[in-house]
Structures are given as structure tokens and as C-alpha cells.
């Protein structure tokens, strides 16, 4: 295995609705910043991979126009995944492992505000047996929360505490969207949105973009004073049929965590892609994190949930925190699909 490190990360401030700029205009300053901070000349970056979904733009091959933000002349080696940017990063990491390139740029973007995201995401369910019923994301997450509540794995108060803690932590993150001090008792007095979920258990609707540059060992050491090493990265998935899974568990996260080597050292903090409050509690267990491990110091997806970037943002936020000296070894996690169907786990070290 080649050593690979994150050498720079950049993201937009996350907002409820990006009214003025299109996707390319959103991306350009992010990509300019991440390339400049990487210390690698734009022309020298060996590979570019993006993560986005046509379903948000409502236009096929919408990702092609985003290449404008990278600067595609002279010609570049480029790829795209119809997934969160964390999986674009994974493809870039594989490309470096194959020895084809020594550096890569991965980026992602999405404007959830353009449609009914909760309904759009229902289209990723089984097109014959499930999607015609339009189970929106909130309803599916509510089914999952109920299983955990019924089994006594967590309480509605535990869920509210996750939401309050994340939005309190987000006060220190200038790029987070939903932040502030919330009283748990007051949150629990609110009505249900889709029972057993209340509004605070759900993520905000966010527009935004993120980008990351990775480099192989010697190059990373040469261009960066504080490279953040990817010590393990792995992704696994569970059945797409919700009714054939125990929704209170996440076996794919557990397996990806083992393969990525989470337990091979102490964990200082974790950035978890848990858009719904109860999902953080499920992921903590699946990753075997001790109760005192700090989770989502950035605020996490409950403070900003840019669809297609929220997973890459977990890896990016974790790398920035390590580079800033606020931790030595961290877990970053990304998810895709309803109710934590597919999961990517990444172990980072300073």
C-alpha cells in the first residue's frame, strides 16, 4: 500500500438556498482555494474525480458542466461518481494506490434547495416495490428510529441531546448553517414532524460544495507541513430492502470500520455522516466508539447537510482538525442511501 495524505480541504459556507450562484460558480472559489493550499500546481494534479447527482439538478449529465470549475484545458484525467464526494475521494485514493498518479483532486456539490429533496431521495429506493409509495427520507429515518427506540437502544431524549450538542458545537464553525443553544426539554416539548422524529432530529436543507486534494507519500511530505494520512479507507453496503435489515444496527459500518482499522489505535474524535440524530447513536455502536469520544465537533450534518458533499465534508473537517493540532487520530464516516444503507469509514492520522 502507498501512503496517501490529505494535503488540503476547502468548502463553501453552507446555506439554506444558494440563490445567486450556479454550481460552477459555487465550485470555482472552493477549487481555487483547495488547489492553492495544496502546494501542487493545478497542471500537476494527476487525477480529478467528482461526486454529485443529476437528480438534484433535474438534468442528465449535469456533472459535466461542473468540470468547467476545474479548468479542463489542457486536457485532464477525470471521472465522476453518482455518489457523495467521499466516494469520489475513494476512487482517487484507488487511482493513487494503482500507481497511475501521485496526486488527485476530489470534489462534490449539490443544491438541495431546488427541489423537494426528501422526495427526490425516495427515487433511490427499489423502483418496483418501494419507490411508487414515495417513502420520503424523513419517513424512512423515522422507521429506523422507531426500531431503536422499541429495542431500548436509545431514547427520544438521547436523540434530542445529540441534536442540541451538534448545533452547539456548530457555533464554532463559521461555515455551518444551523447553530445555537437549544434546551433539550424545550425540544422534547415540540410536536412530532413524522413520529417518532421531531424537527430537531432532522437535518437542515443545505446547498454547498467541498473539495479535497490528496497526494502520495513523498509528494505529500514535500508540499505540506501537516499532511493528514489516510491510514485506512473502506466502504460496504447493506440490503436495499429496509424490511430485510435490522435497522437499529449498521453491519456495513461495522465491517468497513474493521477493514479501515478503527480499533487499531485510540480515537481522539469522530466526524460521522449522521443526518438524523438517532443515526449518530447507531454509528457510535457500529464503530465501537467509547462514550467519551467527541463526535462531530464541526456540528456535523445536523448543522449543515449539503447533499452529495456532507460525507466528503466529514473527512475534510476531520483532516482540518488534525492539521490544526486538535487531535492525532480520528474516524471519518460517510453514508449513502436510506437509513445508512451504504457506509464508508476512513481513519486519519496526523
Amino acid at each position: 500500500m502507498r501512503d496517501v495524505a490529505i494535503v488540503s480541504y476547502s468548502q463553501t459556507p453552507y446555506v439554506r438556498s444558494e440563490r445567486v450562484r450556479n454550481e460552477v460558480e459555487m465550485l470555482m472559489p472552493v477549487i481555487d482555494a483547495v488547489v492553492e493550499q495544496s502546494g501542487i500546481a493545478r497542471r500537476e494534479i494527476g487525477f480529478t474525480c467528482s461526486g454529485s447527482t443529476d437528480y438534484l439538478a433535474g438534468q442528465s449529465f449535469s456533472f459535466v458542466m461542473a468540470v468547467d470549475a476545474v479548468g479542463a484545458w489542457p486536457p485532464i484525467k477525470e471521472s465522476h461518481v453518482e455518489m457523495d464526494g467521499a466516494w469520489a475521494l475513494y476512487e482517487a485514493w484507488v487511482k493513487i494506490q494503482c500507481g497511475e498518479v501521485d496526486s488527485a483532486l476530489a470534489f462534490s456539490f449539490g443544491r438541495s434547495s431546488m427541489g423537494e429533496t426528501a422526495e427526490t431521495l425516495a427515487l433511490q429506493t427499489d423502483p418496483y416495490t418501494v419507490a411508487p409509495l414515495c417513502p420520503d427520507t424523513i419517513s424512512m429515518a423515522a422507521l429506523q428510529a422507531r426500531v431503536g427506540l422499541d429495542k431500548g437502544l436509545f431514547s427520544e431524549r438521547d436523540m434530542a441531546e445529540v441534536a442540541a450538542r451538534c448545533r452547539r458545537a456548530a457555533k464554532d464553525n463559521p461555515e455551518a448553517q444551523l447553530k445555537g443553544d437549544f434546551d433539550v426539554d424545550k425540544l422534547l416539548a415540540e410536536p412530532y414532524l413524522v413520529s417518532p422524529l421531531r424537527k430537531h432530529d432532522c437535518p437542515p436543507i443545505s446547498d454547498g460544495a467541498a473539495a479535497i486534494v490528496i497526494a502520495a507519500g513523498d509528494l505529500a511530505k514535500q508540499v505540506s507541513k501537516k499532511p493528514v494520512w489516510i491510514r485506512g479507507i473502506d466502504h460496504r453496503l447493506d440490503s436495499h430492502q429496509l424490511g430485510s435489515r435490522d435497522l437499529s444496527l449498521s453491519p456495513s459500518t461495522e465491517l468497513a470500520g474493521k477493514k479501515a482499522g478503527v480499533a487499531q489505535g485510540p480515537i481522539d474524535f469522530a466526524e460521522l455522516h449522521a443526518p438524523f440524530s438517532h443515526q449518530e447513536l447507531i454509528l457510535r455502536r457500529a464503530l465501537g466508539l467509547a462514550d467519551d469520544v467527541l463526535v462531530n465537533p464541526s456540528g456535523g450534518p445536523l448543522a449543515a447537510n449539503p447533499i452529495m458533499s456532507a460525507g466528503l465534508a466529514r473527512i475534510g473537517e476531520a483532516s482540518r482538525r488534525i492539521a490544526a493540532g486538535k487531535g492525532q487520530r480520528a474516524v471519518a464516516h460517510a453514508t449513502s442511501g436510506p437509513c445508512l444503507q451504504q457506509n464508508l469509514v476512513c481513519v486519519l492520522e496526523g
Binding site: 419517513s139 423515522a142 422507521l143 422507531r146 413524522v194 413520529s195 417518532p196 422524529l197
Partner: peptide, 11 residues
């Protein structure tokens, strides 16, 4: 398991 939808969507 069940999720109560108090305000159904058009779809």
C-alpha cells in the same frame, strides 16, 4: 416498525 405521517405529501 412504523412512522406516523401527520401531513401527507401529494405523492
Amino acid at each position: 416498525s412504523w412512522a406516523w405521517v401527520a401531513n401527507p405529501r401529494a405523492k
